[in-house]
């Protein structure tokens, strides 16, 4: 399998998954670049008997979460340096929303829901994205996250409770 083939086969999966995490087209492109550079770099060490799709999902999720952590740290230090008030501080930690898949729908409730999901803890966010947006089964999500199916179910319930609190 050539690098170009891998890219063609998984580019949309990686880009759209990154987009659900960062909710910004430019950031998603950056994450997609990072993910494929990492995949090509580690291709020689990838066990060919392992599931490629699961491996790519894992790399994309980790890269997206790392990117968000880095971006929020950068934003936080910038905001603290400006000594802004508490309310505007939280608002500023939300993404610069530019999700073409949602903007095309012109559905305000969808946009609000996505912004709430953005504020969930990382594991809860991942479960919601994989189950509800990517449409994976509980077993697939459990394999990607290296958890039991029961743990995925409990994370999903917790995510719903957290969303209820935020909504």
């Amino acid at each position: 399998m050539t690098y170009k083939n891998i890219y063609n086969q998984y580019k949309n999966l990686v880009f759209n998954l990154a987009l659900q995490y960062c909710q910004n087209r430019q950031d998603a492109e950056e994450i997609t670049q990072d993910v494929f550079v990492k995949i090509f770099d580690k291709w020689q060490t990838f066990r060919k008997d392992a599931d490629l799709k699961t491996w790519i999902y894992r790399i994309t999720i980790n890269q997206s979460l790392d990117f968000l952590k880095y971006k929020q740290r950068k934003k936080r230090s910038f905001i603290i340096s400006l000594l802004s008030s508490d309310s505007s501080y939280k608002e500023n930690l939300l993404p610069d929303f530019d999700h073409p898949g949602i903007l095309m729908e012109q559905d305000e409730s969808l946009k609000i829901l996505m912004q709430k999901i953005y504020r969930l803890p990382k594991n809860q966010k991942t479960v919601i994205i994989l189950l509800k947006i990517e449409g994976l089964t509980q077993r697939e999500v459990a394999e990607i996250m290296k958890l039991s199916e029961g743990a995925v179910e409990s994370l999903f319930q917790r995510a719903k409770t957290s969303l209820k609190k935020i909504l």
Partner: peptide, 8 residues
């Protein structure tokens, strides 16, 4: 409604 998100 999350299923309505368009693939890009």
């Amino acid at each position: 409604i999350l299923k309505n998100i368009k693939r890009i």
